[in-house]
Design a protein around this nucleic acid. Structure first.
Length: 519
RNA sequence: CGGGGAGUGGCGCAGCCCGGUAGCGCACAGCGUUUGGGACGCUGGGGUCGCAGGUUCGAAUCCUGUCUCCCCGACCA
């Protein structure tokens, strides 16, 4: 289905309307999804219902029980299954950050309004999306507090006290927490008023050191997203217009969703001395001079969960890469008579013990209130990479029937060496998913040299388009006519190559630029 | 924040125009038969109709306000 989204969208846009609308909140129990069948009509094809990509996304997130809506606009509840994905993301990223010398800490949720104003571009950038606390303890506050949209300001106020000498540098601190931005338009995981993330804030002696840090983090992110989430990314820099409010350089990672639109997967900023200067953080350098430290900040958020859904999902629901899936394997026992049940359950317990010992993340669906067929669909909806069907026939043959979620192929696997077989099957699922996503991104990435060509391309086949750009913001703004924007510039300007006349205005091109419609 | 659509048992909807005290399917509970791709029968429980005002003898239904969700736009590291 994913490949059809592009065309489906166009069809919908030019007249076709979809009928089933509205949120489809999830089932009643942790494992009792009943969505994707509006009206309860099981004969109705899911494919026919999911004509609208946006609607598909919401339905999938709700019915896989990743999250649910709350009475507060733009604020979702992340349900256990969704949070389990986040915990796996955290574990991986946290391990990488620790391995590169970073330490975790925690800073206040509330930030004095005056702090936000210290850095001119910073406050200008964030002013429209601040949530402001005006009262506390029944009293009007002498100074308003903002709920952190990001923590640079409060952290640099601390760094002023913590950094006195070059011997105190570098400071390599990360924080796992939440942030609040008053968004006008919200979508679960992709954009919301409150989201969970990690934000790293480092301080260094030199620009070069800070820049190396920002790039190191970007590399860590890229590796994680590509190797663990199986999502290809394009690393690059943001244009002046798109960069972080208060940064000198913003490095970004852009990924292509199945509808051809770009999603910013995370950013890493070289903040120069902007915040050091604004908060008067000074250190005595080796040369005896007082200097402002050079700093960075970087973040990835729960938006990555949205990316997993949008990149890998299909008409049956989620498909999770084995390396991040809360459950890598789910076992569905099958029997008809009580005698069969006894032997099957004994066999399942044996398999369970072996796979548990092999370190697989495993779930046994022992519900006897629903049929095996129901369970198959249920776990496919949740994207479990591999399902083991174990019934009397399997017991008799001393095997299990394995069904992989990504290709929906089934195969029998003998009990001998089962764990090893599953490990390699999971690896194959992981690499197949990565290759599939890579192929989609590659086949929807093109180079164009003329504005008309770009416009026609974006209209006919949404995706990534490399253009030549003169660097003039006016040309960048014209892309808005196409509902597109510059998502990234090549990492290194020098290596970018001028590639020819600016795709927009025809003047000398200074750099290549990646253009796409964005989430 | 502008334009459009929608909120009625857990979910999907009907009822609203022409006010008279709420209905259907699925889900849920019990029992029985079932179980290798979303099982079936019987019985049963569950709803201050998003919220707040107003009109009326009487409001799911008419009026006003407000909140949330969806779509389009503007905005958005």
């Amino acid at each position: 289905m994913p490949d059809e989204w592009v065309t489906t969208k166009a069809v919908t846009k030019h007249g076709g309307t979809t009928e089933p609308k509205g949120p489809v909140p999830a089932g009643t129990g942790p494992f009792h999804s009943q969505i994707r069948r509006p009206g309860g009509d099981m004969d109705e094809s899911v494919d026919e219902q999911i004509e609208d990509r946006s609607d598909w996304y919401i339905r999938t997130v709700l019915s896989a029980e990743l999250a649910d809506y709350t009475p507060v606009r733009g604020s979702i509840a992340i349900r256990p299954y969704g949070y389990a994905i986040w915990e796996n993301i955290q574990a991986d990223v946290d391990r990488e950050l620790k391995a590169t010398g970073h330490k975790n800490a925690s800073f206040p949720l509330f930030i004095p309004m005056s702090f936000m104003r210290r850095e001119a571009e910073h406050v200008e950038g964030f002013a429209p999306e601040l949530a402001v606390v005006t009262h506390g303890g029944g009293q009007k506050l002498a100074e308003e507090l903002v709920v952190r949209p990001t923590s640079e300001t409060i952290i640099y106020d601390c760094y002023r006290k913590w950094i006195k000498s070059y011997r105190d540098l570098p400071v390599l601190i990360n924080q796992w927490g939440n942030a609040v931005r008053w968004e006008m338009r919200t979508r679960p995981f992709l954009r919301g008023m409150e989201f969970l993330w990690q934000e790293g804030h480092t301080a260094h002696e030199t620009f070069a050191e800070a820049d190396a840090e920002a790039r190191l983090i970007l590399d860590i992110y890229v590796r994680f997203i590509q190797e663990v989430l199986a999502i290809p990314v394009v690393p690059g820099r943001k244009s002046e217009r798109e960069k972080f409010a208060g940064a000198e350089i913003t490095y970004t990672m852009e990924s292509m969703m199945r509808d051809g639109r770009a999603l910013q997967m995370g950013t890493s900023h070289n903040l120069g001395q902007n915040f050091g200067r604004a908060f008067d953080v000074r250190f005595l350098d080796r040369d005896g001079e007082q200097k402002f430290p050079w700093s960075t900040s970087w973040a990835v958020s729960t938006r990555l969960i949205g990316a997993l859904v949008l990149v890998h999902g299909d008409d049956k629901g989620l498909i999770l890469p084995p390396r991040i899936a809360p459950f890598q394997v789910v076992i569905v026992p099958i029997w008809r008579k009580d005698e069969e049940r006894a032997t099957v359950e004994a066999f399942v317990s044996q398999v369970e013990a072996e796979l548990q010992a092999a370190g697989l993340r495993l779930e046994i669906d022992r519900r006897d209130t629903v049929t095996p067929g129901f369970k198959f669909n249920d776990w496919e909806l949740r994207g479990v990479p591999v399902r083991l069907e174990i019934g009397p026939r399997d017991v008799a043959a001393n095997q299990v029937t394995a069904a992989r979620r990504d290709t929906r192929e089934k195969q029998a696997i003998g009990l001998a060496g089962l764990a090893a077989e599953l490990h390699s099957l999971l690896e194959d699922v992981q690499s197949t998913m990565a290759a599939r996503a890579r192929e989609f991104a590659d086949t929807h990435t093109q180079s164009v040299s003329g504005f008309a060509e770009l416009a026609a391309g974006l209209e006919a086949s949404p995706g990534f388009y490399w253009i030549n750009w003169c660097g003039d913001p006016v040309c960048e703004d014209r892309l808005m006519e196409l509902k597109a924007s510059i998502r990234a510039l090549p990492m290194d300007e020098s290596a970018a190559g001028a590639g020819g006349a600016c795709t927009v205005c025809g003047k000398d091109g200074k750099t290549r630029a990646l253009v796409a419609k964005a989430y």
